[in-house]
Nucleic acid binder design. Structure first.
Lengths: 161, 161
DNA sequence: CCTTGAACCTACAGTCGCTGTAGCTCCCAT
DNA sequence: ATGGGAGCTACAGCGACTGTAGGTTCAAGG
């Protein structure tokens, strides 16, 4: 009943269990494997993926870092660091600092945007399109109060889950 | 009288001029045309696009709205409104309100994230990876101070232009 | 008139991080 | 033995572009 290679008590998870335990989607796990973020796992005789504890931990790390908004490239670097625990963690520090800077820059840009949008809404007199200040501001650069006008990054409307 | 052709003094811009005057890239203009956001312009004998003032205005509107972070679908709706100036501008109001709500939600999420990242950095003792709190927090859900843990939306590192 | 080189053309692949679909096969419980 | 849920591969699609390859057109200078 027990196989000789691995430990008899080692947990063996199919992909769905991994997904459930980490809150990741099955397709996402396969995607991570396809881009080399997760190593190829063992397979059953029927070609289905079987994971152990280390893979579960690794995926948990990835998921957690994604929840913090780190891009996959940064996560890749962070994962490499966990493989050499004796090294200095300066690089990790740098990655987080860079990310924090990016977050702060985004907050700043979004706050400027928030002010402009709020002003736009206030100035709308709820009449017709012809004399709508909202349309006016968008049509004519001069009518607009913004000083800088750096474009805001793409802003996807996320489906409310 | 001057119904032969449009107007002798009507400006005729090639795509590059349009790009320069609006701050849009040439490819982006062609992309907007391909998705039906800009109508197909007239062409020269040599098949090159030629635009008039109305197209320039329309693209300016699009560019401006994009700088405000509106997604193209919203811009499409706003453009439809400018075509019927007698209609009520309630819809425009709604689009802007929706966008503002989205912006505020993003600011909130990013500020929560900012706090967590800052705490992460503070707790790093600049030693080795093995005892790094940054790596620790990412590895172990329990070590983490966040209450909610909603994932933050994708955050591309934009190339610094 | 001819050449040069910038600007233009089409068509398509790549970006990021997934998500969804189609059309299979596999595994486990009844 | 069977039913259905879980798994498999491969590929298309999202948003909003950006970049590339390989060709054509245009305006200015010699």
């Amino acid at each position: 009943m027990t196989e000789f290679a691995t430990n008899a008590t080692a947990p063996r998870y199919p992909i769905g269990d991994l997904a459930r335990q980490t809150g990741t989607k099955v397709q996402t796990i396969r995607y991570y494997e396809s881009i080399g973020l997760l190593p190829e796992p063992a397979r059953t005789a029927g070609n289905q993926r079987i994971y152990g504890q280390d893979q579960l931990d690794r995926l948990g790390f990835i998921k957690h870092a994604r929840d913090f908004g780190f891009p996959l490239d940064a996560i890749r670097e962070l994962l490499e660091m966990t493989d050499k625990p004796a090294a200095s963690c300066v690089e990790a520090d740098e990655i987080v600092s860079r990310h924090l800077g990016e977050v702060r820059r985004r907050i700043g840009r979004l706050q400027a945007l928030e002010g402009e949008l709020a002003r736009m809404l206030e100035s709308c007199s709820h009449g017709t399109v012809a004399d709508c200040r909202i349309i006016g501001v968008l049509s004519d650069h001069e009518k607009c109060c913004s000083t800088s006008h750096e474009p805001v990054e793409t802003m996807p409307y996320r489906s409310p889950d």
